[in-house]
Design a binder for these strands. Structure first.
Lengths: 238, 238
DNA sequence: GCAAAATTTGCGGGTTCCCGCAAGACAAGA
DNA sequence: TCTTGTCTTGCGGGAACCCGCAAATTTTGC
Protein backbone atom coordinates (compact mmCIF):
# COMPACT_ATOMS: atom_id res chain seq x y z
CA UNK A 1 0.00 0.00 0.00
CA UNK A 2 1.29 3.40 -1.03
CA UNK A 3 0.44 6.79 0.39
CA UNK A 4 1.21 10.10 -1.28
CA UNK A 5 1.53 13.23 0.82
CA UNK A 6 1.04 16.57 -0.92
CA UNK A 7 1.88 19.43 1.40
CA UNK A 8 4.10 22.44 0.96
CA UNK A 9 5.15 23.07 4.53
CA UNK A 10 8.13 20.88 5.41
CA UNK A 11 7.21 20.70 9.08
CA UNK A 12 3.71 19.60 8.37
CA UNK A 13 4.96 17.22 5.75
CA UNK A 14 7.20 15.36 8.10
CA UNK A 15 4.54 15.40 10.79
CA UNK A 16 2.14 13.80 8.35
CA UNK A 17 4.74 11.28 7.30
CA UNK A 18 5.11 10.29 10.90
CA UNK A 19 1.37 10.06 11.43
CA UNK A 20 0.93 7.89 8.37
CA UNK A 21 3.67 5.55 9.49
CA UNK A 22 2.10 5.25 12.90
CA UNK A 23 -1.50 4.88 11.83
CA UNK A 24 -1.01 2.63 8.83
CA UNK A 25 1.42 -0.21 9.46
CA UNK A 26 0.18 -1.82 6.25
CA UNK A 27 1.60 1.10 4.31
CA UNK A 28 4.97 0.21 2.82
CA UNK A 29 5.90 3.36 0.92
CA UNK A 30 5.24 6.99 1.65
CA UNK A 31 5.79 9.53 -1.09
CA UNK A 32 6.00 13.25 -0.66
CA UNK A 33 5.25 16.18 -2.93
CA UNK A 34 5.75 19.82 -2.08
CA UNK A 35 3.04 21.31 -4.24
CA UNK A 36 0.06 20.49 -6.38
CA UNK A 37 1.96 20.12 -9.61
CA UNK A 38 4.48 17.68 -8.27
CA UNK A 39 1.63 15.93 -6.53
CA UNK A 40 -0.20 15.31 -9.77
CA UNK A 41 2.89 13.94 -11.44
CA UNK A 42 3.74 11.73 -8.50
CA UNK A 43 0.22 10.39 -8.33
CA UNK A 44 0.32 9.55 -12.02
CA UNK A 45 3.69 7.85 -11.88
CA UNK A 46 3.33 5.99 -8.64
CA UNK A 47 -0.31 5.02 -9.19
CA UNK A 48 -0.82 5.71 -5.52
CA UNK A 49 -4.42 5.17 -4.52
CA UNK A 50 -4.18 7.00 -1.23
CA UNK A 51 -3.45 10.69 -1.02
CA UNK A 52 -3.23 13.16 1.82
CA UNK A 53 -3.68 16.61 0.34
CA UNK A 54 -3.16 20.07 1.71
CA UNK A 55 -5.36 22.82 0.35
CA UNK A 56 -3.82 26.25 -0.12
CA UNK A 57 -0.42 25.64 -1.59
CA UNK A 58 1.40 28.04 -3.79
CA UNK A 59 2.07 26.84 -7.32
CA UNK A 60 -1.10 24.81 -7.59
CA UNK A 61 -3.57 24.39 -4.82
CA UNK A 62 -5.02 21.18 -3.47
CA UNK A 63 -8.39 21.45 -5.10
CA UNK A 64 -6.91 21.74 -8.56
CA UNK A 65 -4.54 18.89 -7.94
CA UNK A 66 -7.25 16.67 -6.50
CA UNK A 67 -9.43 17.34 -9.46
CA UNK A 68 -6.90 16.18 -11.99
CA UNK A 69 -6.01 13.17 -9.88
CA UNK A 70 -9.64 12.17 -9.61
CA UNK A 71 -10.16 12.77 -13.29
CA UNK A 72 -7.51 10.23 -14.06
CA UNK A 73 -8.44 7.74 -11.36
CA UNK A 74 -11.77 8.43 -9.71
CA UNK A 75 -11.30 5.65 -7.17
CA UNK A 76 -8.36 7.39 -5.54
CA UNK A 77 -8.97 8.01 -1.86
CA UNK A 78 -8.08 11.53 -0.82
CA UNK A 79 -7.88 12.95 2.66
CA UNK A 80 -7.87 16.73 2.63
CA UNK A 81 -5.92 18.28 5.45
CA UNK A 82 -6.31 21.99 5.79
CA UNK A 83 -5.83 24.88 8.11
CA UNK A 84 -9.15 26.44 7.31
CA UNK A 85 -12.74 25.50 6.86
CA UNK A 86 -13.70 28.48 4.72
CA UNK A 87 -16.99 27.88 3.04
CA UNK A 88 -15.20 28.53 -0.21
CA UNK A 89 -12.89 25.57 0.34
CA UNK A 90 -15.64 23.26 1.51
CA UNK A 91 -17.67 24.18 -1.52
CA UNK A 92 -14.65 23.83 -3.76
CA UNK A 93 -14.00 20.32 -2.53
CA UNK A 94 -17.62 19.28 -2.73
CA UNK A 95 -17.82 20.40 -6.30
CA UNK A 96 -15.01 18.14 -7.52
CA UNK A 97 -15.72 14.93 -5.63
CA UNK A 98 -16.62 12.30 -8.21
CA UNK A 99 -19.72 10.15 -7.83
CA UNK A 100 -19.15 7.58 -5.13
CA UNK A 101 -15.59 8.56 -4.32
CA UNK A 102 -14.39 8.30 -0.75
CA UNK A 103 -12.67 11.24 0.81
CA UNK A 104 -12.09 13.02 4.06
CA UNK A 105 -11.63 16.59 5.25
CA UNK A 106 -9.92 17.24 8.55
CA UNK A 107 -8.45 20.38 9.99
CA UNK A 108 -4.83 20.75 10.93
CA UNK A 109 -5.91 21.74 14.39
CA UNK A 110 -7.39 18.34 15.19
CA UNK A 111 -5.59 15.99 17.53
CA UNK A 112 -3.13 13.31 16.51
CA UNK A 113 -5.70 10.78 17.50
CA UNK A 114 -8.35 12.11 15.21
CA UNK A 115 -5.96 12.44 12.33
CA UNK A 116 -4.98 8.82 12.66
CA UNK A 117 -8.59 7.74 12.87
CA UNK A 118 -9.30 9.71 9.74
CA UNK A 119 -6.38 8.11 7.94
CA UNK A 120 -7.60 4.63 8.77
CA UNK A 121 -11.22 5.51 8.16
CA UNK A 122 -10.67 6.88 4.70
CA UNK A 123 -7.87 4.67 3.43
CA UNK A 124 -8.74 1.33 5.04
CA UNK A 125 -12.43 1.43 5.79
CA UNK A 126 -13.39 3.54 2.79
CA UNK A 127 -15.48 5.82 4.93
CA UNK A 128 -15.95 9.50 4.34
CA UNK A 129 -14.54 11.28 7.35
CA UNK A 130 -15.50 14.91 7.68
CA UNK A 131 -14.40 16.96 10.64
CA UNK A 132 -17.13 18.21 12.88
CA UNK A 133 -16.44 21.84 12.15
CA UNK A 134 -16.20 21.31 8.41
CA UNK A 135 -19.45 19.42 8.54
CA UNK A 136 -20.96 22.45 10.22
CA UNK A 137 -19.96 24.65 7.33
CA UNK A 138 -21.36 22.17 4.85
CA UNK A 139 -24.72 22.19 6.59
CA UNK A 140 -24.82 25.90 6.86
CA UNK A 141 -24.05 26.40 3.22
CA UNK A 142 -27.04 24.21 2.43
CA UNK A 143 -29.45 25.70 4.93
CA UNK A 144 -31.59 28.07 2.90
CA UNK A 145 -31.28 30.68 5.64
CA UNK A 146 -28.28 32.54 4.36
CA UNK A 147 -26.82 29.74 2.33
CA UNK A 148 -26.29 30.45 -1.33
CA UNK A 149 -27.64 28.12 -3.95
CA UNK A 150 -25.20 26.88 -6.56
CA UNK A 151 -26.72 29.21 -9.09
CA UNK A 152 -26.22 32.17 -6.81
CA UNK A 153 -22.71 31.14 -5.99
CA UNK A 154 -21.78 30.95 -9.64
CA UNK A 155 -23.12 34.41 -10.23
CA UNK A 156 -21.23 35.63 -7.21
CA UNK A 157 -17.96 34.38 -8.64
CA UNK A 158 -18.65 35.96 -12.01
CA UNK A 159 -19.44 39.26 -10.38
CA UNK A 160 -16.37 39.04 -8.21
CA UNK A 161 -14.23 38.53 -11.28
CA UNK A 162 -15.45 41.86 -12.53
CA UNK A 163 -17.80 40.83 -15.32
CA UNK A 164 -20.67 43.08 -16.27
CA UNK A 165 -24.25 41.92 -16.10
CA UNK A 166 -24.31 41.63 -19.85
CA UNK A 167 -21.18 39.52 -19.96
CA UNK A 168 -22.54 37.22 -17.30
CA UNK A 169 -25.82 36.89 -19.14
CA UNK A 170 -23.96 35.81 -22.24
CA UNK A 171 -21.74 33.40 -20.33
CA UNK A 172 -24.59 31.80 -18.46
CA UNK A 173 -26.99 31.99 -21.38
CA UNK A 174 -29.53 34.02 -19.52
CA UNK A 175 -31.26 37.27 -20.17
CA UNK A 176 -29.93 40.42 -18.64
CA UNK A 177 -32.87 40.69 -16.29
CA UNK A 178 -32.43 37.19 -14.97
CA UNK A 179 -28.87 37.90 -14.04
CA UNK A 180 -30.02 40.98 -12.22
CA UNK A 181 -32.67 38.94 -10.42
CA UNK A 182 -30.04 36.53 -9.21
CA UNK A 183 -28.00 39.47 -8.09
CA UNK A 184 -30.89 40.81 -6.07
CA UNK A 185 -31.30 37.46 -4.34
CA UNK A 186 -27.63 37.60 -3.56
CA UNK A 187 -27.93 41.07 -2.12
CA UNK A 188 -30.66 39.92 0.21
CA UNK A 189 -28.93 36.79 1.33
CA UNK A 190 -25.72 38.62 2.00
CA UNK A 191 -27.41 41.33 4.01
CA UNK A 192 -26.07 44.06 1.87
CA UNK A 193 -28.76 46.47 2.85
CA UNK A 194 -27.53 47.03 6.36
CA UNK A 195 -27.04 50.68 7.08
CA UNK A 196 -25.85 51.58 10.54
CA UNK A 197 -27.27 55.04 10.22
CA UNK A 198 -24.30 57.07 11.31
CA UNK A 199 -21.52 58.43 9.13
CA UNK A 200 -21.84 58.73 5.40
CA UNK A 201 -25.33 57.27 5.50
CA UNK A 202 -23.87 53.80 4.95
CA UNK A 203 -23.91 54.19 1.21
CA UNK A 204 -22.91 51.03 -0.43
CA UNK A 205 -22.33 50.01 -3.97
CA UNK A 206 -24.35 46.84 -3.71
CA UNK A 207 -22.43 44.87 -6.27
CA UNK A 208 -19.09 45.53 -4.63
CA UNK A 209 -20.48 45.25 -1.15
CA UNK A 210 -21.87 41.81 -1.83
CA UNK A 211 -18.43 40.61 -2.81
CA UNK A 212 -16.84 42.28 0.17
CA UNK A 213 -19.27 40.60 2.54
CA UNK A 214 -18.73 37.26 0.85
CA UNK A 215 -15.00 37.65 1.28
CA UNK A 216 -15.30 38.70 4.91
CA UNK A 217 -17.53 35.72 5.61
CA UNK A 218 -15.17 33.43 3.74
CA UNK A 219 -17.90 32.38 1.39
CA UNK A 220 -15.43 33.46 -1.24
CA UNK A 221 -11.68 33.44 -0.95
CA UNK A 222 -8.65 34.14 -3.05
CA UNK A 223 -8.30 30.62 -4.27
CA UNK A 224 -11.90 30.49 -5.43
CA UNK A 225 -11.22 33.68 -7.35
CA UNK A 226 -8.15 32.21 -8.94
CA UNK A 227 -10.10 29.19 -10.03
CA UNK A 228 -12.78 31.39 -11.51
CA UNK A 229 -10.23 33.51 -13.32
CA UNK A 230 -8.57 30.49 -14.80
CA UNK A 231 -11.87 29.08 -16.02
CA UNK A 232 -12.79 32.42 -17.45
CA UNK A 233 -9.62 32.72 -19.43
CA UNK A 234 -9.74 29.17 -20.69
CA UNK A 235 -13.39 29.53 -21.60
CA UNK A 236 -12.43 32.13 -24.12
CA UNK A 237 -9.47 30.29 -25.46
CA UNK A 238 -6.82 32.25 -23.73
CA UNK B 1 16.21 38.29 28.22
CA UNK B 2 12.67 37.22 27.39
CA UNK B 3 11.24 36.22 24.03
CA UNK B 4 7.55 35.95 23.25
CA UNK B 5 6.39 33.72 20.41
CA UNK B 6 2.99 34.43 18.88
CA UNK B 7 2.00 31.72 16.43
CA UNK B 8 -1.12 29.65 16.09
CA UNK B 9 0.29 26.52 14.53
CA UNK B 10 1.63 24.21 17.27
CA UNK B 11 4.24 22.66 15.01
CA UNK B 12 5.62 25.98 13.95
CA UNK B 13 5.46 27.21 17.48
CA UNK B 14 7.62 24.46 18.83
CA UNK B 15 9.95 24.78 15.88
CA UNK B 16 10.34 28.46 16.67
CA UNK B 17 10.87 27.73 20.32
CA UNK B 18 13.67 25.42 19.36
CA UNK B 19 15.21 27.95 17.02
CA UNK B 20 15.12 30.68 19.64
CA UNK B 21 16.79 28.43 22.18
CA UNK B 22 19.49 27.54 19.73
CA UNK B 23 20.12 31.02 18.35
CA UNK B 24 19.87 33.00 21.56
CA UNK B 25 21.68 31.40 24.47
CA UNK B 26 21.30 34.69 26.35
CA UNK B 27 17.55 34.17 26.36
CA UNK B 28 16.37 32.77 29.66
CA UNK B 29 12.60 32.56 29.18
CA UNK B 30 10.52 31.79 26.14
CA UNK B 31 6.81 32.53 26.23
CA UNK B 32 4.22 31.29 23.79
CA UNK B 33 0.86 32.59 22.65
CA UNK B 34 -1.46 30.89 20.22
CA UNK B 35 -3.14 33.93 18.75
CA UNK B 36 -2.96 37.67 18.56
CA UNK B 37 -5.19 38.36 21.53
CA UNK B 38 -3.26 36.17 23.89
CA UNK B 39 -0.10 37.61 22.42
CA UNK B 40 -1.07 41.14 23.35
CA UNK B 41 -1.93 40.15 26.88
CA UNK B 42 1.26 38.18 27.30
CA UNK B 43 3.34 41.02 25.97
CA UNK B 44 1.72 43.41 28.39
CA UNK B 45 2.11 41.18 31.40
CA UNK B 46 5.56 39.85 30.75
CA UNK B 47 6.98 43.13 29.46
CA UNK B 48 8.84 41.10 26.88
CA UNK B 49 10.86 43.29 24.58
CA UNK B 50 11.41 40.67 21.94
CA UNK B 51 8.57 39.17 19.95
CA UNK B 52 8.37 36.70 17.10
CA UNK B 53 5.04 37.19 15.41
CA UNK B 54 3.15 35.18 12.86
CA UNK B 55 0.88 37.08 10.50
CA UNK B 56 -2.39 35.43 9.50
CA UNK B 57 -3.76 33.93 12.65
CA UNK B 58 -7.40 33.41 13.31
CA UNK B 59 -8.83 35.38 16.21
CA UNK B 60 -6.56 38.34 15.75
CA UNK B 61 -3.90 38.56 13.15
CA UNK B 62 -0.30 39.53 13.63
CA UNK B 63 -0.54 43.03 12.26
CA UNK B 64 -3.25 44.02 14.69
CA UNK B 65 -1.42 42.46 17.58
CA UNK B 66 1.86 44.10 16.63
CA UNK B 67 0.18 47.45 16.38
CA UNK B 68 -1.19 47.36 19.89
CA UNK B 69 2.07 46.05 21.26
CA UNK B 70 4.00 48.82 19.58
CA UNK B 71 1.46 51.36 20.70
CA UNK B 72 2.15 50.43 24.29
CA UNK B 73 5.91 50.00 23.96
CA UNK B 74 7.34 51.33 20.72
CA UNK B 75 10.79 50.01 21.49
CA UNK B 76 9.68 46.40 21.35
CA UNK B 77 11.59 44.42 18.74
CA UNK B 78 9.35 42.34 16.56
CA UNK B 79 10.35 39.70 14.05
CA UNK B 80 7.51 38.88 11.68
CA UNK B 81 7.51 35.32 10.48
CA UNK B 82 5.06 34.57 7.74
CA UNK B 83 4.17 32.12 5.04
CA UNK B 84 3.48 34.77 2.49
CA UNK B 85 4.89 37.95 1.16
CA UNK B 86 1.63 39.35 -0.19
CA UNK B 87 1.98 42.98 -0.96
CA UNK B 88 -0.98 43.52 1.32
CA UNK B 89 0.94 42.12 4.27
CA UNK B 90 4.12 43.97 3.50
CA UNK B 91 2.18 47.17 3.21
CA UNK B 92 0.26 46.37 6.34
CA UNK B 93 3.44 45.91 8.33
CA UNK B 94 5.12 48.97 6.91
CA UNK B 95 2.16 51.11 7.87
CA UNK B 96 2.32 50.23 11.57
CA UNK B 97 6.06 50.31 12.22
CA UNK B 98 6.72 53.18 14.63
CA UNK B 99 9.40 55.73 13.94
CA UNK B 100 12.78 54.19 14.56
CA UNK B 101 11.56 50.80 15.65
CA UNK B 102 13.58 47.75 14.76
CA UNK B 103 11.81 44.83 13.18
CA UNK B 104 12.31 41.96 10.78
CA UNK B 105 10.25 40.12 8.20
CA UNK B 106 11.28 36.62 7.17
CA UNK B 107 9.38 33.92 5.38
CA UNK B 108 8.66 30.54 6.86
CA UNK B 109 10.32 28.98 3.87
CA UNK B 110 13.75 30.35 4.70
CA UNK B 111 16.42 28.09 6.07
CA UNK B 112 17.11 27.46 9.74
CA UNK B 113 20.32 29.33 9.29
CA UNK B 114 18.69 32.46 8.03
CA UNK B 115 16.03 32.37 10.69
CA UNK B 116 18.66 32.24 13.37
CA UNK B 117 20.60 35.06 11.79
CA UNK B 118 17.44 37.10 11.70
CA UNK B 119 16.74 36.37 15.35
CA UNK B 120 20.17 37.55 16.37
CA UNK B 121 20.15 40.45 13.97
CA UNK B 122 16.89 41.89 15.18
CA UNK B 123 16.99 41.06 18.87
CA UNK B 124 20.69 41.45 19.63
CA UNK B 125 22.11 43.74 17.02
CA UNK B 126 18.99 45.85 16.59
CA UNK B 127 19.18 45.58 12.85
CA UNK B 128 16.21 45.49 10.54
CA UNK B 129 16.29 42.17 8.76
CA UNK B 130 14.04 41.86 5.75
CA UNK B 131 14.00 38.75 3.63
CA UNK B 132 15.18 39.11 0.10
CA UNK B 133 11.83 38.26 -1.40
CA UNK B 134 9.90 40.51 0.93
CA UNK B 135 12.30 43.29 0.10
CA UNK B 136 11.49 42.72 -3.53
CA UNK B 137 7.81 43.27 -2.87
CA UNK B 138 8.58 46.42 -0.92
CA UNK B 139 10.56 47.83 -3.79
CA UNK B 140 7.99 46.92 -6.35
CA UNK B 141 5.21 48.51 -4.38
CA UNK B 142 7.21 51.73 -4.40
CA UNK B 143 8.29 51.66 -8.01
CA UNK B 144 5.92 54.04 -9.72
CA UNK B 145 5.54 51.59 -12.60
CA UNK B 146 2.59 49.60 -11.34
CA UNK B 147 2.99 50.37 -7.69
CA UNK B 148 0.11 52.10 -6.03
CA UNK B 149 0.61 55.29 -4.10
CA UNK B 150 -0.73 55.38 -0.58
CA UNK B 151 -3.59 57.56 -1.72
CA UNK B 152 -4.53 55.07 -4.39
CA UNK B 153 -4.24 52.19 -2.02
CA UNK B 154 -6.59 53.81 0.44
CA UNK B 155 -9.15 54.39 -2.24
CA UNK B 156 -8.76 50.81 -3.34
CA UNK B 157 -9.61 49.56 0.12
CA UNK B 158 -12.63 51.81 0.35
CA UNK B 159 -13.90 50.65 -2.98
CA UNK B 160 -13.28 47.04 -2.06
CA UNK B 161 -15.36 47.48 1.06
CA UNK B 162 -18.25 48.43 -1.15
CA UNK B 163 -18.49 52.16 -0.56
CA UNK B 164 -19.93 54.38 -3.25
CA UNK B 165 -17.97 57.21 -4.76
CA UNK B 166 -19.99 59.66 -2.79
CA UNK B 167 -19.38 57.88 0.50
CA UNK B 168 -15.67 57.76 -0.20
CA UNK B 169 -15.63 61.43 -1.07
CA UNK B 170 -17.21 62.24 2.26
CA UNK B 171 -14.90 59.93 4.15
CA UNK B 172 -11.78 61.25 2.51
CA UNK B 173 -12.99 64.84 2.37
CA UNK B 174 -12.65 65.10 -1.35
CA UNK B 175 -15.00 66.06 -4.12
CA UNK B 176 -16.78 63.38 -6.04
CA UNK B 177 -14.76 64.02 -9.13
CA UNK B 178 -11.46 63.69 -7.31
CA UNK B 179 -12.43 60.30 -6.05
CA UNK B 180 -13.30 59.28 -9.57
CA UNK B 181 -9.97 60.61 -10.77
CA UNK B 182 -8.15 58.47 -8.28
CA UNK B 183 -10.23 55.55 -9.42
CA UNK B 184 -9.20 56.11 -12.99
CA UNK B 185 -5.56 56.12 -11.98
CA UNK B 186 -6.22 52.85 -10.23
CA UNK B 187 -7.84 51.37 -13.29
CA UNK B 188 -4.82 52.20 -15.36
CA UNK B 189 -2.28 50.93 -12.90
CA UNK B 190 -4.14 47.70 -12.44
CA UNK B 191 -4.47 47.06 -16.15
CA UNK B 192 -8.17 46.80 -15.98
CA UNK B 193 -8.60 47.64 -19.61
CA UNK B 194 -7.27 44.38 -20.96
CA UNK B 195 -9.74 42.79 -23.31
CA UNK B 196 -8.64 39.56 -24.96
CA UNK B 197 -11.12 40.04 -27.75
CA UNK B 198 -12.76 36.67 -27.78
CA UNK B 199 -15.83 35.59 -25.87
CA UNK B 200 -18.22 38.08 -24.37
CA UNK B 201 -16.11 40.92 -25.64
CA UNK B 202 -14.26 41.00 -22.32
CA UNK B 203 -16.73 43.34 -20.75
CA UNK B 204 -15.64 44.29 -17.35
CA UNK B 205 -17.18 46.30 -14.61
CA UNK B 206 -14.10 48.38 -13.97
CA UNK B 207 -14.73 49.01 -10.31
CA UNK B 208 -15.18 45.33 -9.52
CA UNK B 209 -12.47 44.25 -11.89
CA UNK B 210 -9.92 46.49 -10.24
CA UNK B 211 -10.59 44.83 -6.93
CA UNK B 212 -10.49 41.38 -8.48
CA UNK B 213 -7.11 42.10 -10.04
CA UNK B 214 -5.80 43.51 -6.80
CA UNK B 215 -6.88 40.37 -5.00
CA UNK B 216 -5.39 38.08 -7.61
CA UNK B 217 -2.12 39.99 -7.44
CA UNK B 218 -2.20 39.94 -3.66
CA UNK B 219 -2.08 43.68 -3.51
CA UNK B 220 -5.16 43.22 -1.39
CA UNK B 221 -6.05 40.25 0.72
CA UNK B 222 -8.69 39.13 3.14
CA UNK B 223 -6.89 40.45 6.16
CA UNK B 224 -6.49 43.89 4.64
CA UNK B 225 -10.21 43.88 3.99
CA UNK B 226 -10.95 42.91 7.54
CA UNK B 227 -8.82 45.72 8.79
CA UNK B 228 -10.61 48.15 6.53
CA UNK B 229 -13.98 46.92 7.61
CA UNK B 230 -13.09 47.29 11.24
CA UNK B 231 -11.85 50.83 10.74
CA UNK B 232 -14.95 51.68 8.80
CA UNK B 233 -17.27 50.44 11.48
CA UNK B 234 -15.38 52.13 14.27
CA UNK B 235 -15.16 55.35 12.29
CA UNK B 236 -18.88 55.63 12.50
CA UNK B 237 -19.13 54.66 16.10
CA UNK B 238 -20.28 51.14 15.65
C1' DG C 1 -53.05 16.25 -15.82
C1' DC C 2 -53.56 20.48 -13.45
C1' DA C 3 -52.93 24.08 -10.30
C1' DA C 4 -49.55 26.40 -7.37
C1' DA C 5 -44.99 28.01 -6.95
C1' DA C 6 -40.82 29.42 -8.63
C1' DT C 7 -38.00 31.30 -12.64
C1' DT C 8 -37.27 33.79 -16.59
C1' DT C 9 -37.96 37.66 -19.49
C1' DG C 10 -39.20 42.41 -21.16
C1' DC C 11 -40.03 47.33 -20.14
C1' DG C 12 -39.22 51.60 -18.00
C1' DG C 13 -37.08 54.91 -15.08
C1' DG C 14 -34.18 56.56 -11.32
C1' DT C 15 -29.48 56.38 -9.74
C1' DT C 16 -24.67 55.62 -9.95
C1' DC C 17 -20.62 55.02 -12.49
C1' DC C 18 -17.11 56.25 -16.07
C1' DC C 19 -14.81 59.76 -18.22
C1' DG C 20 -13.64 63.85 -21.63
C1' DC C 21 -13.15 68.70 -21.21
C1' DA C 22 -11.75 72.78 -19.05
C1' DA C 23 -11.28 76.03 -15.44
C1' DG C 24 -9.10 77.00 -10.74
C1' DA C 25 -5.41 75.87 -6.89
C1' DC C 26 -0.95 75.06 -5.39
C1' DA C 27 4.14 74.14 -5.54
C1' DA C 28 8.65 74.18 -7.75
C1' DG C 29 11.89 76.42 -10.62
C1' DA C 30 13.80 79.86 -14.12
C1' DT D 1 6.87 87.19 -11.83
C1' DC D 2 5.82 84.03 -15.05
C1' DT D 3 5.87 79.38 -16.47
C1' DT D 4 5.27 74.56 -16.01
C1' DG D 5 3.44 70.54 -13.93
C1' DT D 6 0.49 68.20 -10.76
C1' DC D 7 -3.82 67.97 -8.33
C1' DT D 8 -8.51 69.26 -7.52
C1' DT D 9 -13.12 70.52 -8.81
C1' DG D 10 -17.32 71.27 -11.71
C1' DC D 11 -20.20 70.12 -15.73
C1' DG D 12 -22.29 67.11 -18.88
C1' DG D 13 -23.53 62.95 -21.11
C1' DG D 14 -23.50 58.02 -22.37
C1' DA D 15 -23.46 53.48 -20.35
C1' DA D 16 -24.25 50.34 -16.70
C1' DC D 17 -26.58 49.22 -12.58
C1' DC D 18 -30.69 48.57 -9.43
C1' DC D 19 -35.26 47.37 -9.21
C1' DG D 20 -40.73 47.48 -9.37
C1' DC D 21 -44.20 45.60 -12.26
C1' DA D 22 -46.37 42.12 -15.00
C1' DA D 23 -46.59 38.64 -18.54
C1' DA D 24 -44.60 34.24 -20.17
C1' DT D 25 -42.36 30.04 -19.08
C1' DT D 26 -40.74 26.19 -16.43
C1' DT D 27 -40.82 23.36 -12.32
C1' DT D 28 -43.02 21.27 -8.60
C1' DG D 29 -46.48 18.82 -5.93
C1' DC D 30 -50.55 16.28 -5.70
Amino acid sequence: MKVLIVEDDPLHRSYLHEAVRAALPECDTVLEAENGHVGEVQARQSRAEHVVMDLQMSERNGIEAARTIWRERPDTKILFWSNYSDEAYVRGVARIVPEGATYGYVLKSTSDERLKLALRGVFIESQCVIDREVRGIQQKSLGTAHGLSDAEYEILVDVALGLTDKAIAQRKKLSLRSVQNRLQQLYEKLDVYEDPGNGPEGWYNLRMRAVAVALLRKVLNASALERGERELRSARGN
